[in-house]
Nucleic acid binder design. Structure first.
Lengths: 220, 220
DNA sequence: GTGGATATGTAACAAAAGATACGTGTCGTC
DNA sequence: GACGACACGTATCTTTTGTTACATATCCAC
């Protein structure tokens, strides 16, 4: 588990700020699959993930979800930063993927730190930058790729190093913003092409190169 | 036309920084419809739009464009900021929509200003924040709305106050990330429903309320 | 006004994605 | 081992979007 004290940005802080942070930060544990934030929530502070993974997603009126991005240990939630700096309500939903521990740094404290600590400025700007890049990449993909490509991509990105991905088709659909049936169809194709094998709640990648080809092939 | 001196952030700078900026900023005029930046370009500084409008878009392998966002006077290009702070190549294309004037603030100068001037920190963070919000909105729309809704939305957002939008169907297609034919089809529908009337290179909104309904109706 | 460039209308078809409706398989638990 | 909850497979149908292929219309320059 990552401790607050181990984070890069923390190490560079002044003694005073470090004390402020240690005393002012509120640690919050989130069980897997529980809601952390909902659309419209007021944001009390900056969210810093220590352990686990948060998933930020949208929920369309018809009920289909779509993952916007993940927040990994050491990263902060940019949408929360946004809300802090611009006094807005939270514009999406957040869920804990695994058992997750987050530190909430109260807004006033964060603003103070931002004002005086270069390393916090750095952290803020770079978190926002990364988010812009990720979102833009998503947007570009969504415009130019079919589900087939995006699914192959998802497999390659999220499988563990031994080529195994533990995830149900329903959840895959939620990530890509489509339905289980569509995922099943595509998985059927991939299976037939011997790119993967499947089990209950698990995908095993069998032909990484082939999947890469699918993920990269340009539109017709 | 907006002068550098009239911008909010500029007014709050120290005398010294103001001099630096006036001397270090490079003004660049861009004719309408010309390329300002291409994917892969190295970025020499922060881009600040004084006049006109820049359009940031992606170009899929099959040639279809899709607008990511617009940069209006007084705004900066966040992707350029990204590239500056993270030393990356530019990840998209930029085009001048109208006759546009931009100030390029060289990277080293901008970094210095960012380090010492709260108003520049503010500007940077808020530019990034706004971008994150816009991109997220786009992403959400793209997941949950059909072309029909998105087009109605585009009409409402981009028509002048008297309900006129001067834009060809080809360009509408480029913005929404689809082809002219699809736009023509939808425009045909809207026309038949008396929501709009059309001319060569111009759309006239006839029933704003009706369009709003189309734009807001939730998925089936 | 003629010609070329540009913009639009539209029909017909193909492909992708979404919706509906079941049947089947697998797991844990009682 | 019987049950229910959950996960998966699949077939069919509809809607939406993308493609192809022309015909027509408008504008500008000469």
């Amino acid at each position: 588990m990552v401790e607050l004290e181990q984070l890069d940005a923390f190490a560079k802080l002044s003694e005073e700020s470090r004390t402020l942070l240690s005393q002012g930060g509120i640690t919050r544990a989130c069980a897997p699959a529980t809601a952390v934030l909902n659309k419209g929530d007021a944001i009390s502070g900056a969210y810093l993930v220590l352990q686990g993974q948060l998933r930020v997603y949208t929920l369309a009126p018809n009920g289909t979800e779509a993952t916007l991005y993940f927040i990994n240990p050491g990263e902060t939630c940019v949408l929360a930063l946004n809300c802090l700096f611009n006094d807005l309500r939270y514009p999406a939903w957040v869920q804990a993927e695994e058992a997750t521990e987050v530190v909430v740094i109260p807004g006033p404290l964060y603003r103070t730190l931002f004002r005086f600590e270069p390393s916090i400025q750095e952290l803020t700007v770079s978190a926002l930058s990364v988010a812009v890049f990720r979102l833009m990449g998503e947007l570009e993909q969504l415009h130019s790729q079919r589900h087939r490509q995006r699914l192959a991509n998802f497999f390659l990105l999220h499988a563990s190093s031994d080529g195994v991905l533990r995830m149900t088709q329903q959840r895959l659909g939620n990530h890509l913003g489509t339905t289980r049936e569509v995922i099943a169809r595509l998985i059927g194709e991939f299976s037939a092409e011997a790119l993967i094998t499947t089990g209950r709640g698990v995908i095993r990648l069998r032909n990484i190169e082939g999947l890469r080809e699918v993920a990269c092939q340009s539109a017709p």
